[in-house]
């Protein structure tokens, strides 16, 4: 049980810290194109998807799904989806 309390004491400050950090994040993602982010992020788990695999509306839905599953930021997701929509 001592281990469990230690775990809780570790996770609580982590959660609070992440909330604070997430509200003031900075990034160099702004310098990357959607094509570059598509090439770098999708391939970390699976082959890069073909833009023609889905239509514009479907890419919006898949983008939201992958944003959560793959821990993507809003900016990364938006750029990737815009690239896929422009190239399909």
């Amino acid at each position: 049980m001592k281990n469990i309390k230690t775990l809780f004491v570790f996770l609580l400050p982590l959660a609070v810290g992440l909330i604070l950090a997430s509200s003031c994040a900075s990034s160099k993602i702004t310098m990357k194109s959607g094509a570059q982010l598509w090439g770098e992020n999708c391939v970390r788990c699976h082959a890069t998807p073909s833009p023609s695999a889905y239509n514009d509306i479907d890419w919006e839905t898949i983008g939201l799904h992958m944003r959560i599953r793959a821990n993507l930021t809003a900016e990364e997701t938006n750029k990737i989806v815009e690239f896929l929509q422009s190239a399909n």
């Binding site: 982590l14 821990n71 993507l72």
Partner: peptide, 17 residues
Amino acid sequence: EMRGAIPVGSMKILYSV
């Protein structure tokens, strides 16, 4: 669960609690 990603300079931190 609370999860997400935070860019820090050229790095990125992924988190989940």
